[in-house]
Design a protein around this nucleic acid. Structure first.
Lengths: 198, 198
DNA sequence: ACCTGAACACCGTTCAAGT
DNA sequence: ACCTGAACACCGTTCAAGT
């Protein structure tokens, strides 16, 4: 998993500056923040931004990768101390409040869930395909399958369905956010419908 | 409800041309189609577009108003020949497939459901507030309240919740559209959760 | 009263020139 | 190998000048 080739010192510095600038810009203006502005904040030319992150999506993924990984890790923690059905519910709640709290995280899940395979995050090194989508999908799959084995989750849905639905409900809950209350309510409704047996 | 002041002949013609151009542009490129391009297609200056439709949203609403009204009208038709709960389910299915089929309709519902009062559609005549949002809200309210009286729909949701959720699920179902199958599935799950008693 | 289209500001993206 | 920043294309919005 080591870098295929270590970055030159200045490149490495620019990479970090860009990430830092991106995180704060996305936090301020949501996804869709001006890329040019991000480059300026980082004190680099706009071309440099494109060299490091060829698409807006690549930048978004890189900026939020650690948060995504943290959420994915929570899946294991919850699975360890709760019965599968409850673990799934609680995880979705955390994912949902995360999407409400962190602007751009929802957009990212939307992208991740839109297409099957997500593109690479880092500079063309095919081994490091740490796409956010894979990360969440793996975590969700574990919880979903466990709940299905337990018999508390209907069998005609899969992890991608569940992630898609969570994203959709976050969209539904967004209008009047501020209270992360609504997403919990909506997710509760969903879980009611997802319960095995009907 | 008559126009406060009849439009000049050329203004009226431009208004119609703009609407026609907008409908086809939105159909091709989805909401977010270039406004400049729409003005060009209509053969008018860009300023004229802004005179008639000061915001993109106003143009979207005007372009889809008839579809929205048709969907709203379906609510009454369904209420007349189905028990309330089933009427609501069927109406949401039609709304859902409409959002999948007609690009831009989903965006419009999203806007309508985002804030309470929608702005006026026509040129500043305050009486003609035929906002799409009001239209759908009214239709949904009728169905929702009837189902609640019937006892088949939980009482802790309102029409706006239901519209928001429908919009959210349309978002969730969008990724791999083509089959309008998925939105029905997702809506079925939702209705399971919305059933009274739980 | 309404229309036109040039003008402005802004953004994304590319690429020749530099080190 | 990497960076810079000018250049280009595109879009939304405004407004002075026209009829």
């Amino acid at each position: 998993m080591a870098q295929v080739r270590p970055m030159r010192a200045d490149a490495r510095r620019n990479h970090e500056r860009l990430l830092k600038a991106a995180v704060s810009a996305f936090a301020e203006h949501g996804d869709g923040a001006s890329l040019d502005d991000i480059a300026k904040r980082a004190g680099v030319g706009s071309g440099t931004l494109y060299r490091h992150f060829p698409t807006r999506r690549a930048l978004l993924e890189a900026a939020y990768l650690d948060r995504i990984e943290a959420i994915a890790a929570r899946a294991d923690a919850l699975a360890a101390r709760l019965p599968p059905g409850e673990a799934l519910v609680e995880w979705l709640n955390e994912l949902g409040t995360g999407m409400i709290r962190i602007r751009g995280l929802k957009a990212l899940l939307g992208l991740a869930v839109t297409d099957g395979g997500a593109p690479a995050v880092t500079d063309g090194a095919p081994a490091v395909r740490t796409a956010c989508g894979d990360c969440l999908r793996t975590a969700a799959t574990r919880l979903v399958e466990a709940a299905q084995r337990e018999g508390t989750l209907r069998r005609d849905v899969d992890a991608v369905d569940v992630l898609r639905l969570a994203h959709g409900l976050a969209t539904a809950a967004e209008p009047a956010d501020g209270d992360a209350q609504r997403i919990r309510r909506y997710l509760a409704l969903l879980m009611e419908g997802l319960r095995a047996g009907g």
